[in-house]
Structures are given as structure tokens and as C-alpha cells.
């Protein structure tokens, strides 16, 4: 653990040393997320040196998948500091198009002479940003609907669940394609909303099932006997106990939404250009597959790696949160 800490301090210190000019620029003239990235880069060595993991985390013992997830999140957060170029800047359309990997461009450049490493890093930031916000929407809506259905029971429950059944019967990608065709394919916020509002059906089913089973438990009967208001029972006694599976599905959901967003961007209806997205990077690389295979291989590996990391992380969380499955 101490060796790891020393390594982290040295690494984050070196990053500041190498990129201090960039960090300074970001602090002075960046937008909000750029400034956050710069501050995070500056604070990192201090946090690693002085910070102390809470005892609960230490006991939970982060496994490899958790470290990979943290590394991916860190790369995404620090994208402005790490990326050598602006991801949308067309550096030199005459001389620097479709370059193979080199020290100046570790992953080469694309058809528009944009640096691919920068696009990959900013793509991670965009993908994860979209995924996290969509999952947040899906979790809030899904939990709310599930609680309502499980709590109300009767006709309301039957109606809500039939609606969920119906929505689940439409293959996800078709549902997304319909919504994206009918509504203006606006910016990234639209993507977040659309992905979030079409991802909550599974969560609501799960929460409803939990509520129905928890309702029968003795501690709920006891709370009811004590005269606690039903809504308080629902929020204070049932909800906290139903959260474990929700956290697990949310983690797995991040990976799934990263995949879905990449698929939509690959099809050309996702993140609008020139924003970098792993899916559209793969689509852009497709015509050059025979001559520039790395252009397609790298973003795909990043994509698969991210999803695998979140899947493993979700599974280990599940094992930790649910003692029965150990």
C-alpha cells in the first residue's frame, strides 16, 4: 500500500511538472470542467500524500476492477490536462492527415488531422459524463416508479407494470431510434435525457420486487404497529434496504449506456460532430480499416475495456453488498 501511495504521489507530481503550462492555461482560460480538471491535477499529489482511506473502504479492499474503474474515471476527469491537443482542432489539413502513431501523435491523426489520443481522452470524458447522468436519471425515475408501484399495489401497480412490460418489449435500440427520429437531434443534453428516460424500466421492476418482499418482513410490520406513517416506512425503512441491488444495476448500467451511446454514435445518430465519441471515432475509421487499422482498434479496445471494468466492478459490488451470494 505504501509503495502504491509513493507511486501515485510521484506520478501525479510528474504530471504537474510536465503539464504545468497547460494547467496554468486551463486555470486562466478554461471553462468550468477544464478548471475542475486543472484543480484536480494540482490537488492529486496532496490528496495522495495526506489523504487517508476511510476504514470502511480499507476493509472493503478495492479489487483490481475497482482500480481500473478509478483509473478510467481519472483519465476522463483529467482529459484536458492529459490530452496533448484540442480534440476538435484540425491541426494541419494539408500535411498532418491520417498520420501513423509517432511521438508527436501517440495514436496518429484522423482524416481531419485531429489528434486521436486527444479525441480518445476527451471521448472517455464525454462518454462517461453522458453515461453517469443518464444512469442518474434512470435510477431516480426507476426507483420512484418502482416504489410507487410496490407501495400502491392494486390497479395502479398493475397499470404501471403493464406499461413497463410494453416498454421492455420494444428492443432498446429501436425505441431510441424512434425517439431520436421524432425529436430534434439536438446536442448532448438530448442524448442524456433520451438515454436516461429509456433505461429505467429494468430498475423499476427490480425496486418493485424488493418493495413487495420487504413489505412482508417483520421490521416493517413492527414499524407499522408503532404507528409510523406509511410514506415514512417506505422512505426510511424499505428504501434503504432496497438500495443494494439498485447500486449494482446502476454500476452495470454505466457500462451498458457507454455501449449504447457508442452504438448510436457509430450509426451517426448519437453525439453530434465534431464532439469526440468512441462510437463515431470507430465509424470514422471504418473506411481506412485496411490501411489504418489502429484507428478502429484503439477506440474499440477502450470501449470494451471500460465496459468490462464496469461489469467486473458491478459483480464484485454485488458480491460485497449481498452476503447471501458469497
Amino acid at each position: 500500500m505504501n509503495r502504491l501511495r509513493a507511486l501515485l504521489i510521484a506520478g501525479s507530481g510528474a504530471l504537474i511538472w510536465i503539464r504545468w503550462q497547460r494547467i496554468w492555461d486551463l486555470l486562466q482560460a478554461g471553462d468550468f470542467s477544464d478548471r475542475m480538471a486543472a484543480l484536480a491535477a494540482l490537488a492529486a499529489p496532496l490528496v495522495f500524500a495526506l489523504g487517508r482511506l476511510p476504514d470502511r473502504w480499507k476493509r472493503a479492499r478495492l479489487d483490481a476492477s475497482a482500480w481500473v474503474v478509478l483509473a478510467i474515471l481519472a483519465a476522463a476527469l483529467l482529459a484536458p490536462v492529459l490530452a496533448p491537443y484540442d480534440p476538435t482542432a484540425q491541426l494541419d489539413l494539408a500535411n498532418r492527415r491520417l498520420l501513423p502513431p509517432s511521438p508527436a501523435h501517440p495514436l496518429g491523426t484522423d482524416l481531419f488531422s485531429r489528434d486521436l489520443l486527444s479525441r480518445l481522452l476527451y471521448g472517455a470524458r464525454l462518454s462517461l459524463w453522458i453515461a453517469c447522468f443518464s444512469v442518474a436519471i434512470a435510477v431516480v425515475v426507476g426507483t420512484g416508479v418502482g416504489l410507487a408501484a410496490g407501495y400502491l399495489g392494486g390497479t395502479a401497480d398493475a397499470l404501471i407494470m403493464r406499461l413497463v412490460d410494453t416498454a421492455l418489449a420494444i428492443p432498446r435500440i429501436f425505441l431510441l431510434l424512434v425517439v431520436l427520429t421524432l425529436w430534434e437531434q439536438g446536442g448532448i443534453m438530448t442524448m442524456v435525457l433520451v438515454l436516461g428516460l429509456t433505461s429505467w424500466f429494468g430498475t423499476s421492476r427490480l425496486v418493485r420486487a424488493e418493495v413487495l418482499s420487504l413489505k412482508q418482513r417483520d421490521f416493517v410490520t413492527a414499524a407499522r404497529a408503532l404507528g409510523i406513517a406509511p410514506i415514512a416506512i417506505l422512505l426510511k425503512h424499505i428504501l434503504p434496504n432496497a438500495l443494494a441491488p439498485v447500486i449494482v444495476t446502476a454500476t452495470l448500467g454505466v457500462g451498458q449506456i457507454v455501449l449504447t451511446e457508442a452504438a448510436l454514435s457509430y450509426l451517426g445518430v448519437g453525439v453530434p460532430p465534431p464532439h469526440p465519441s468512441w462510437g463515431s471515432m470507430i465509424a470514422d475509421a471504418q473506411p481506412f480499416l485496411p490501411t489504418h487499422p489502429w484507428m478502429a482498434i484503439v477506440p474499440g479496445l477502450a470501449l470494451a475495456g471500460t465496459v468490462v471494468a464496469f461489469s467486473f466492478f458491478g459483480e464484485s459490488l454485488q458480491a460485497k453488498l449481498d452476503p447471501r451470494r458469497r
Binding site: 455501449l259 457509430y266 471504418q286 480499416l289 478502429a296 474499440g300 468490462v308 461489469s311
Partner: peptide, 15 residues
């Protein structure tokens, strides 16, 4: 494999 984007797997098999 389960986490691999299907369109990317297709491209790699093509390659």
C-alpha cells in the same frame, strides 16, 4: 466478449 461492442467485433472480424 459480452462487453464487446458488437459493431466493433464485426469490424475486427472483417479486418
Amino acid at each position: 466478449l459480452f462487453s464487446t461492442p458488437v459493431f466493433w467485433l464485426g469490424l475486427m472480424l472483417l479486418l
